[in-house]
Amino acid sequence: MNRALIGKSIYEGLVLFIPCTLGLFAFAWFRVWVVSLIDSLRFKQIIDLLPKEFERFSPIEFEWLTSFTGRTALTLEEPMLIVLFSAWAVVRGSDVVSGELNRGTMEMLLAQPVSRRQVYWTPLVTTLCGLVALCLIIWTAMHLAVETSVVRQTRYPELRIPIWGQTIPLTFMSPISESSPMRAVVSSWSYWPGVVNLLALGVFLLGLTACVSAIDRYRWRTLGIVFGVYFVSGVLKLGAMSSPLLGWLQYLTFFSLYDSQVHIKLAEDGAGHYWSFWIAGDSAWAGLGPWGHNGLLLLGGAVMLYLGSIIFERRDLPAPM
């Protein structure tokens, strides 16, 4: 890679990277902190009021969502976080070819003794590093929030029966409220599977955008196409979840492969399912495993990145408009 090209892509990327970093850090930290403010018992009472049909909009049972781990894991499913994270991949990916062509700077760049491969891959590698950095920032924000927050838990007094070794909650009595550090009830390490899944989604989006960018000559059109695919995929996922009749829609959207809560839950269960590409049997998790999801996203992203490279290598360079 060329030193000047690396410097240029970092310099141009910083304008977006800094706000993305600040936004994602603040959001992830705030979201986990808000969880610490609401008592799990109270949250469970709210969830219990929801009709059972609503559960199909969640990839995971409501019971787990009422735990502190489940509720904090929802941070990685928040549309605001996903959109902001995706924006980095899509905006930087679109700049690789059609961005430079649109601004007319590609001609000057390619008139220098650098290969098209270098011009294509240098900003993409920088963007990939940015994706990894943003994932680390999200995890760090969640970790710091867990480390610094205090949770209040309400529970009923319990009666311990000495010989049986069992405890019985005395629900007829007034509940007891106790404060404890959040780290005592949640391990921030449990978020890693979700964060890795988010990174895989970012790689896929970067590949998709870079490939469209390599074909196109207008950046606005590249962004339009990619965001169009993005939102249609989002709608397809919602459609697939809304009714068993529309379940087949899940095969048409890459968002089916983004399931950070399930990944966190499976890793937490520790049954070895987390590392599976495919989960056999007829359990609730049967089908593509977490590493099947990640693998498909990473493979799709890599294939599209490579395809974009081939297209850019062979295409004519139109004169600046």
């Binding site: 141009e12 000057m108 003794p113 650098v114 600046p320």
Partner: peptide, 21 residues
């Protein structure tokens, strides 16, 4: 083309440069 570009100084008709520099 890369080896050719080592031999050539090229100024295009409509030179566009990096606007943020």
């Amino acid at each position: 083309r890369v080896r050719v570009h080592r031999l050539v100084g090229y100024v295009p008709g409509d030179a566009r440069l990096f606007r943020t520099m």
